[in-house]
Design a protein around this nucleic acid. Structure first.
Lengths: 108, 108
DNA sequence: GCCCTGATTTGACATCTCTCTAATCAGAGG
DNA sequence: CCTCTGATTAGAGAGATGTCAAATCAGGGC
Protein backbone atom coordinates (compact mmCIF):
# COMPACT_ATOMS: atom_id res chain seq x y z
CA UNK A 1 0.00 0.00 0.00
CA UNK A 2 2.67 2.48 -0.80
CA UNK A 3 2.29 4.89 -3.56
CA UNK A 4 5.51 5.83 -5.24
CA UNK A 5 6.50 9.46 -5.30
CA UNK A 6 4.70 10.77 -8.32
CA UNK A 7 6.79 13.21 -10.27
CA UNK A 8 5.04 16.46 -10.99
CA UNK A 9 4.62 15.57 -14.63
CA UNK A 10 2.70 12.41 -13.79
CA UNK A 11 0.41 13.88 -11.19
CA UNK A 12 -1.60 16.01 -13.58
CA UNK A 13 -3.23 13.26 -15.62
CA UNK A 14 -4.55 11.19 -12.72
CA UNK A 15 -5.74 14.38 -11.09
CA UNK A 16 -7.94 15.07 -14.10
CA UNK A 17 -9.61 11.68 -13.79
CA UNK A 18 -9.91 12.03 -10.05
CA UNK A 19 -11.50 15.45 -10.37
CA UNK A 20 -14.06 13.86 -12.64
CA UNK A 21 -15.14 11.35 -10.02
CA UNK A 22 -14.70 13.68 -7.06
CA UNK A 23 -18.33 14.69 -7.09
CA UNK A 24 -21.25 12.86 -5.51
CA UNK A 25 -23.40 13.14 -8.60
CA UNK A 26 -20.73 11.92 -10.99
CA UNK A 27 -19.73 9.15 -8.63
CA UNK A 28 -23.30 7.93 -8.61
CA UNK A 29 -23.63 8.34 -12.35
CA UNK A 30 -20.55 6.23 -12.86
CA UNK A 31 -21.76 3.52 -10.54
CA UNK A 32 -25.23 3.54 -12.05
CA UNK A 33 -23.87 3.17 -15.53
CA UNK A 34 -21.42 0.50 -14.49
CA UNK A 35 -23.97 -1.57 -12.66
CA UNK A 36 -26.75 -1.19 -15.19
CA UNK A 37 -28.06 -4.22 -16.99
CA UNK A 38 -26.39 -4.70 -20.34
CA UNK A 39 -23.46 -2.58 -19.27
CA UNK A 40 -25.06 0.58 -20.51
CA UNK A 41 -27.54 3.12 -19.30
CA UNK A 42 -29.84 5.52 -21.12
CA UNK A 43 -29.50 9.19 -20.27
CA UNK A 44 -33.21 9.33 -19.63
CA UNK A 45 -32.91 6.74 -16.86
CA UNK A 46 -30.02 8.57 -15.29
CA UNK A 47 -31.76 11.91 -15.39
CA UNK A 48 -34.81 10.50 -13.66
CA UNK A 49 -32.70 9.19 -10.80
CA UNK A 50 -31.59 12.64 -9.75
CA UNK A 51 -33.20 15.76 -8.49
CA UNK A 52 -31.36 17.76 -11.11
CA UNK A 53 -32.25 19.19 -14.50
CA UNK A 54 -31.36 17.40 -17.72
CA UNK A 55 -28.73 19.95 -18.72
CA UNK A 56 -26.96 19.45 -15.42
CA UNK A 57 -26.83 15.69 -15.85
CA UNK A 58 -25.69 16.20 -19.40
CA UNK A 59 -22.92 18.42 -18.13
CA UNK A 60 -21.74 15.82 -15.61
CA UNK A 61 -21.80 13.11 -18.26
CA UNK A 62 -19.66 15.29 -20.45
CA UNK A 63 -17.12 15.70 -17.66
CA UNK A 64 -16.92 11.93 -17.24
CA UNK A 65 -16.65 11.46 -20.97
CA UNK A 66 -13.95 14.10 -21.35
CA UNK A 67 -12.00 12.40 -18.59
CA UNK A 68 -12.16 9.21 -20.61
CA UNK A 69 -14.17 7.27 -18.06
CA UNK A 70 -17.29 6.65 -20.11
CA UNK A 71 -18.33 6.60 -23.73
CA UNK A 72 -21.67 7.50 -25.24
CA UNK A 73 -23.55 6.29 -28.26
CA UNK A 74 -26.74 7.56 -29.81
CA UNK A 75 -29.30 4.98 -30.94
CA UNK A 76 -32.34 6.58 -32.38
CA UNK A 77 -33.85 9.02 -29.99
CA UNK A 78 -31.84 7.94 -26.99
CA UNK A 79 -28.23 8.14 -25.94
CA UNK A 80 -26.58 5.31 -24.05
CA UNK A 81 -23.46 5.50 -21.94
CA UNK A 82 -21.11 2.75 -20.85
CA UNK A 83 -18.07 2.49 -18.64
CA UNK A 84 -14.55 2.33 -20.03
CA UNK A 85 -13.13 -0.34 -17.73
CA UNK A 86 -9.45 0.32 -18.35
CA UNK A 87 -9.80 3.91 -17.25
CA UNK A 88 -11.58 2.93 -14.07
CA UNK A 89 -8.97 0.28 -13.42
CA UNK A 90 -6.28 2.88 -13.73
CA UNK A 91 -7.99 4.90 -11.04
CA UNK A 92 -8.09 1.98 -8.66
CA UNK A 93 -4.46 1.16 -9.39
CA UNK A 94 -3.49 4.59 -8.14
CA UNK A 95 -4.32 3.55 -4.60
CA UNK A 96 -3.69 -0.16 -4.68
CA UNK A 97 -0.36 -0.39 -6.44
CA UNK A 98 1.30 -3.62 -7.46
CA UNK A 99 1.33 -5.74 -4.34
CA UNK A 100 2.99 -8.22 -6.63
CA UNK A 101 5.47 -7.17 -9.25
CA UNK A 102 3.39 -8.06 -12.22
CA UNK A 103 5.21 -9.41 -15.19
CA UNK A 104 2.59 -10.48 -17.63
CA UNK A 105 1.07 -7.08 -16.94
CA UNK A 106 -1.97 -7.78 -18.99
CA UNK A 107 -3.92 -5.28 -16.98
CA UNK A 108 -6.66 -5.37 -19.53
CA UNK B 1 -14.85 -4.24 -12.20
CA UNK B 2 -18.38 -3.25 -11.60
CA UNK B 3 -19.22 -0.62 -9.16
CA UNK B 4 -22.53 -1.11 -7.48
CA UNK B 5 -25.09 1.64 -7.73
CA UNK B 6 -24.14 3.92 -4.90
CA UNK B 7 -27.15 5.31 -3.12
CA UNK B 8 -27.11 9.05 -2.72
CA UNK B 9 -26.37 8.78 0.98
CA UNK B 10 -23.21 6.81 0.36
CA UNK B 11 -21.80 8.89 -2.43
CA UNK B 12 -21.04 11.93 -0.32
CA UNK B 13 -18.35 10.42 1.92
CA UNK B 14 -16.22 8.93 -0.84
CA UNK B 15 -16.58 12.15 -2.77
CA UNK B 16 -15.01 14.04 0.10
CA UNK B 17 -11.98 11.76 0.05
CA UNK B 18 -11.80 11.88 -3.72
CA UNK B 19 -11.97 15.65 -3.74
CA UNK B 20 -9.03 15.61 -1.38
CA UNK B 21 -6.84 13.66 -3.78
CA UNK B 22 -8.23 15.26 -6.94
CA UNK B 23 -5.47 17.82 -7.03
CA UNK B 24 -1.99 17.40 -8.49
CA UNK B 25 -0.30 18.92 -5.47
CA UNK B 26 -2.17 16.82 -2.93
CA UNK B 27 -1.72 13.70 -5.01
CA UNK B 28 2.01 14.28 -4.98
CA UNK B 29 1.99 15.12 -1.29
CA UNK B 30 0.21 11.88 -0.54
CA UNK B 31 2.60 9.84 -2.63
CA UNK B 32 5.63 11.58 -1.17
CA UNK B 33 4.47 10.93 2.37
CA UNK B 34 3.56 7.36 1.60
CA UNK B 35 6.83 6.55 -0.05
CA UNK B 36 9.04 8.37 2.41
CA UNK B 37 11.54 6.44 4.47
CA UNK B 38 10.16 5.54 7.88
CA UNK B 39 6.63 6.00 6.65
CA UNK B 40 6.55 9.64 7.60
CA UNK B 41 7.65 12.92 6.10
CA UNK B 42 8.50 16.24 7.67
CA UNK B 43 6.55 19.26 6.47
CA UNK B 44 9.81 21.03 5.79
CA UNK B 45 10.82 18.36 3.28
CA UNK B 46 7.45 18.50 1.56
CA UNK B 47 7.47 22.26 1.33
CA UNK B 48 10.88 22.27 -0.30
CA UNK B 49 9.71 19.90 -3.00
CA UNK B 50 7.15 22.33 -4.37
CA UNK B 51 7.21 25.73 -5.92
CA UNK B 52 4.58 26.91 -3.50
CA UNK B 53 4.61 28.85 -0.26
CA UNK B 54 4.56 27.14 3.12
CA UNK B 55 1.01 28.28 3.93
CA UNK B 56 -0.24 26.75 0.72
CA UNK B 57 1.36 23.40 1.49
CA UNK B 58 -0.02 23.62 4.98
CA UNK B 59 -3.46 24.19 3.53
CA UNK B 60 -3.22 21.14 1.29
CA UNK B 61 -2.00 19.00 4.19
CA UNK B 62 -4.98 20.15 6.18
CA UNK B 63 -7.33 19.09 3.40
CA UNK B 64 -5.76 15.63 3.33
CA UNK B 65 -5.91 15.44 7.12
CA UNK B 66 -9.53 16.56 7.28
CA UNK B 67 -10.39 13.90 4.70
CA UNK B 68 -8.85 11.33 7.03
CA UNK B 69 -6.10 10.33 4.63
CA UNK B 70 -3.10 11.40 6.69
CA UNK B 71 -2.28 12.15 10.30
CA UNK B 72 0.22 14.63 11.66
CA UNK B 73 2.34 14.67 14.78
CA UNK B 74 4.53 17.39 16.19
CA UNK B 75 7.94 16.40 17.51
CA UNK B 76 9.83 19.36 18.81
CA UNK B 77 10.12 21.99 16.15
CA UNK B 78 8.98 19.83 13.30
CA UNK B 79 5.70 18.26 12.25
CA UNK B 80 5.61 14.83 10.65
CA UNK B 81 2.82 13.38 8.56
CA UNK B 82 2.04 9.78 7.76
CA UNK B 83 -0.46 7.94 5.62
CA UNK B 84 -3.57 6.31 7.05
CA UNK B 85 -3.50 3.08 5.03
CA UNK B 86 -7.09 2.03 5.63
CA UNK B 87 -8.39 5.26 4.22
CA UNK B 88 -6.26 4.95 1.11
CA UNK B 89 -7.35 1.34 0.75
CA UNK B 90 -10.94 2.43 0.87
CA UNK B 91 -10.27 4.76 -2.02
CA UNK B 92 -8.79 2.02 -4.11
CA UNK B 93 -11.64 -0.30 -3.24
CA UNK B 94 -14.05 2.18 -4.79
CA UNK B 95 -12.74 1.31 -8.22
CA UNK B 96 -11.57 -2.25 -7.75
CA UNK B 97 -14.50 -3.70 -5.86
CA UNK B 98 -14.78 -6.99 -4.01
CA UNK B 99 -13.29 -9.84 -5.91
CA UNK B 100 -14.20 -11.47 -2.64
CA UNK B 101 -17.09 -10.49 -0.40
CA UNK B 102 -15.72 -8.46 2.43
CA UNK B 103 -15.97 -9.66 5.98
CA UNK B 104 -12.49 -10.09 7.32
CA UNK B 105 -11.44 -7.26 5.09
CA UNK B 106 -7.76 -7.60 5.67
CA UNK B 107 -7.12 -6.12 2.29
CA UNK B 108 -3.60 -6.59 1.12
C1' DG C 1 -43.17 19.77 -43.66
C1' DC C 2 -44.29 20.14 -38.78
C1' DC C 3 -44.23 19.05 -34.23
C1' DC C 4 -42.87 16.30 -30.25
C1' DT C 5 -39.63 14.14 -27.18
C1' DG C 6 -34.88 13.43 -25.73
C1' DA C 7 -30.24 15.39 -25.31
C1' DT C 8 -26.82 18.90 -25.61
C1' DT C 9 -25.03 23.65 -25.85
C1' DT C 10 -25.01 28.41 -24.28
C1' DG C 11 -24.97 32.03 -20.97
C1' DA C 12 -25.45 33.57 -16.37
C1' DC C 13 -24.81 33.40 -11.43
C1' DA C 14 -23.61 31.80 -6.76
C1' DT C 15 -20.31 29.15 -4.57
C1' DC C 16 -16.14 26.89 -3.80
C1' DT C 17 -11.03 26.43 -4.48
C1' DC C 18 -6.14 27.62 -4.91
C1' DT C 19 -2.79 30.74 -4.05
C1' DC C 20 -0.66 34.49 -1.92
C1' DT C 21 0.74 37.96 1.98
C1' DA C 22 0.46 39.10 6.71
C1' DA C 23 -0.20 37.70 11.20
C1' DT C 24 -0.12 34.22 14.79
C1' DC C 25 1.17 29.96 17.27
C1' DA C 26 4.80 26.44 19.08
C1' DG C 27 9.27 25.04 20.62
C1' DA C 28 14.33 25.55 21.09
C1' DG C 29 18.14 28.09 22.58
C1' DG C 30 20.78 32.02 23.96
C1' DC D 1 12.71 36.93 28.48
C1' DC D 2 13.76 37.47 23.80
C1' DT D 3 14.45 35.88 19.44
C1' DC D 4 14.75 32.62 15.82
C1' DT D 5 12.97 28.94 12.89
C1' DG D 6 9.15 25.97 11.49
C1' DA D 7 4.17 25.54 10.93
C1' DT D 8 -0.50 27.05 10.95
C1' DT D 9 -4.32 30.42 10.74
C1' DA D 10 -6.70 34.53 8.78
C1' DG D 11 -8.02 37.29 5.03
C1' DA D 12 -8.22 38.52 0.18
C1' DG D 13 -8.42 37.95 -4.80
C1' DA D 14 -8.34 35.39 -9.33
C1' DG D 15 -10.13 31.52 -11.30
C1' DA D 16 -12.73 27.15 -11.55
C1' DT D 17 -17.11 24.57 -10.65
C1' DG D 18 -22.18 23.23 -10.13
C1' DT D 19 -26.59 24.55 -11.17
C1' DC D 20 -30.30 26.48 -13.75
C1' DA D 21 -33.28 28.61 -17.65
C1' DA D 22 -33.37 29.34 -22.44
C1' DA D 23 -31.97 28.10 -26.87
C1' DT D 24 -30.43 24.65 -30.07
C1' DC D 25 -29.58 20.08 -32.12
C1' DA D 26 -31.20 15.10 -33.43
C1' DG D 27 -34.60 11.66 -34.69
C1' DG D 28 -39.24 9.77 -35.10
C1' DG D 29 -43.98 10.01 -36.38
C1' DC D 30 -48.05 12.42 -37.84
Amino acid sequence: MDIEPLPESEAADPAVMLKAVADPVRLRLLSMIGSHAGGEACVCDLTDAFDLTAPTISHHLKVLRTAGLISGERRGTWVYYRIIPEAVNRLGALFTPPAEPVSGERAS
